[in-house]
């Protein structure tokens, strides 16, 4: 930004300075101090400058810069180490999470299996008990049916006797004579047969 601002400004400055310099050129004609090599100081400053530069170079190269390099290297190894550690920790965490997930899934499936087995077992036991009960009931039913049939049969047998006796008594009372036994038997038999109960 400042760069954009400067060139025109610098042009103006240069123009003004050159204008003034041309005026000042006369006073500068005796020479720039920089080019006054007659002055022993001009060359002396080079000698001292060379000595100072050499001393600075040795100090920087031997002491200052290695010290900075050491700090930078320390940081580099530290950051690298930390990043490696972070990556390793992350990997470890990831495997741990995966293990936990796997264990959870395994436990869940095992629990499901045992639940299923228990339910199966319970169902089977219930079915067994039901079957036994059914069998017993069936048995009792059959026994009862047998008893009922026997009772009915005996009752039906008694009906014929009762009917025969009743018929003979009724006939003897009505007619006053003893009816033929055989005939009554046949009549009762016929009547029973007609009702389908003989």
């Amino acid at each position: 930004m400042s760069r954009r601002l400067f060139p025109p400004c610098r042009f103006a400055c240069l123009a003004a300075a050159l204008l003034l310099l041309s005026g000042a050129a006369a006073s500068a004609a005796e020479g720039m101090p920089q080019l006054n090599f007659a002055n022993p100081l001009t060359l002396a400053q080079i000698v001292w400058g060379a000595i100072i530069f050499a001393v600075l170079y040795v100090i920087f190269a031997r002491s200052s810069l290695p010290q900075v390099a050491e700090v930078l290297a320390n940081r580099e190894t530290r950051i690298t180490g930390d990043l490696e550690a972070a990556r390793d920790a992350k990997a470890a965490a990831d495997t741990a999470v995966a293990e936990v997930n796997a264990a959870t899934a395994r436990a869940r499936s095992e629990a499901q299996a045992s639940i299923n087995a228990a339910v199966e077992q319970a169902k089977k036991e219930a079915a067994d008990r039901a079957r036994v009960l059914n069998e017993r009931l069936e048995q009792q039913l059959q026994t009862s049916e047998g008893q009922i049939a026997a009772a009915r049969n005996s009752a039906l047998g008694a009906i014929r006797e009762v009917a025969t006796d009743t018929a003979r008594v009724m006939v003897s009372r009505l007619t006053g004579r003893t009816p033929d036994r055989q005939a009554i038997d046949d009549a009762v038999g016929q009547a029973l047969a007609a009702r389908g109960q003989a």
Binding site: I79, L83, A86, R87
Partner: peptide, 8 residues
């Protein structure tokens, strides 16, 4: 982490 490692 990936960005930091990328920088380094």
């Amino acid at each position: 982490l990936r960005a930091a490692r990328g920088r380094k």
